[in-house]
Design a protein around this nucleic acid. Structure first.
Lengths: 215, 215
DNA sequence: TGGTGTGAAACTTTTCACAGCT
DNA sequence: AGCTGTGAAAAGTTTCACACCA
C-alpha cells in the first residue's frame, strides 16, 4: 500500500499536469510554485504542499524541474498508458462525450458506446457504432475496460452501474442525477450538470435579494 | 446581507430539492433526515445540519414537512423563477447542453447558443439557431441573461468570459479546461470533464500498483 | 537572493452523541 | 419512542510565515 495522497490534492494533480505539458512544450526547464499556481488558478503554498506528496523535484531558490515533475505526475496519473472507457447512454450528452477530443488527448479511448434502446443501436458516431446494452459484458472483457461513463436517464443509472461493476469496471463517472449505491471498492464520481447551474442560480438569487432588501 | 450558507451546504441543496420533489409527487407528507440522506447519498447528521441553515421545518420525533421544506428550498435556489442562460461554443458539448432536458426541467431556459465560427452560425439546434458571437451583448441584454456557459476551446475561454461579464452576466459555468481570471463579484464554476476521468484513472493506477507491488 | 519545504495556525467540513421536544 | 437540533470532537483543507538551502 502506497502512502496516500489527500483527495483534494488528487483533484488538482491533473490541473497541474496540464499546465506542465504546456510548459514542457514551450521548452521551459524550470517552473516556480508561483507560476504553476498562476496557471492552475490556485495558491502557491497550495502547490508546494501538493507537490510534497509526490517525489518532489524542487530546488530552493530555483523552482521545479519541469520535465521531472511532469514525468512524475504522468506516472501517478497513469497518463503514459491508454485507458479503455465505455459510455452507456447514447443521448446527446453520451454522443458529445464519445467524440470529446479532450478525452483522447488525455489517454482515454472510447472503447464503445452502448444504449438500451434498440432504435439507437447501430447508429454511427464518428468511427464508433452504438452497441446494444446486452453487449456490455463482452465488450468490457474484450477491451479490458476499467472506466465507465453513465449518461442514461436517472431511473436507469443504478442498474447500469451494477452491470458495469459486474463487467469488471472499477471506476464510474456518473452524469445521471442520482446517487449510486455500489460496493466500496468502486470509485464513483458524480457530475451533475443541473446542480452546477442551480448553485449559480442560488448565488444570483442572493445577489438580487441583497440589491433589493426584502420586507 | 443575509446570513450566509456554507458553500458545501449550498452544493447539496439542489440534491435535496430533487429528492423532495420526488417525495412531494409521491404524496409523502413528512420525511426524516435519514430518508432524505439515503435519497441524496449523504449522512443523516449532515442533512440535519444543512437544513438548519434554512428556516427549518423539522418536528422532533416526526421529521420534516415535505411541502414546507420543498417550498423553502425552491425559494432559496430561485427555483420558482426561470433563468435565461446563454451557451457560447456550439461544438458537440455545446449542442448537447443546449438540448439537455435537465436544464429545462430545473428552470433554465437556453436563450441562445453562440459560436465564433461563422460556419456554425445559422445552424439549427432543436428550436434554436446558432448565433454569431458578435450578437452576445445584444442577446444578453434583450433576454436578461444572468448565467453563461462556456463550451469553447481552452484558448478562447478567457476572452469569451470577459465578453460575458461585459454583457452583464454574473455567473459562469466553464467547461473549457482553463482557469478563468475574472472580477471577484462573478461566480464561476469550473467543470472539467477530462480531470474527472483522470482522477478515476489515478485510482485505477493505484489499484493496479497495489495488486502487483513494485520493485 | 529567491524560492522551496514545512510546522503551525486558521478555517472549513464532517461526524458523533445526546439533550430535548412532540 | 423517535427524530430533530446542536454543541463538541474529529478530520480535512487552506493559508501563513519563515527557516533553510541551492
Amino acid at each position: 500500500m502506497k502512502s496516500s495522497i489527500p483527495p483534494a490534492t488528487v483533484g488538482r494533480l491533473p490541473v497541474y499536469l496540464r499546465a506542465l505539458l504546456v510548459l514542457e512544450a514551450s521548452g521551459a526547464e524550470v517552473v516556480s510554485s508561483a507560476e504553476l499556481a498562476e496557471a492552475s488558478g490556485v495558491n502557491p503554498a497550495q502547490v508546494r504542499k501538493d507537490l510534497t506528496h509526490l517525489r518532489s523535484s524542487g530546488k530552493r531558490g530555483v523552482g521545479y524541474d519541469v520535465m521531472g515533475l511532469a514525468a512524475e505526475m504522468r506516472k501517478e496519473l497513469g497518463f503514459d498508458q491508454r485507458w479503455a472507457v465505455v459510455i452507456v447512454g447514447a443521448g446527446h450528452l453520451g454522443q458529445a462525450l464519445a467524440t470529446y477530443p479532450g478525452f483522447l488527448e488525455r489517454g482515454f479511448d472510447i472503447a464503445s458506446v452502448l444504449d438500451a434502446d434498440p432504435a439507437k443501436a447501430g447508429m454511427e458516431l464518428g468511427d464508433l457504432r452504438v452497441e446494444p446494452l446486452s453487449e456490455l459484458g463482452r465488450l468490457c472483457a474484450e477491451r479490458e475496460v476499467a472506466i465507465g461513463i453513465i449518461c442514461t436517464p436517472a431511473d436507469a443509472a443504478q442498474e447500469v452501474a451494477q452491470k458495469l461493476v459486474a463487467a469488471g469496471v472499477g471506476s464510474i463517472l456518473n452524469f445521471a442525477p442520482v446517487p449510486l449505491t455500489l460496493p466500496g471498492r468502486v470509485n464513483v464520481r458524480q457530475v451533475d450538470l443541473s446542480v452546477e447551474l442551480q448553485i449559480l442560480a442560488f448565488h444570483e438569487q442572493r445577489r438580487a435579494e441583497d440589491e433589493a432588501p426584502g420586507p
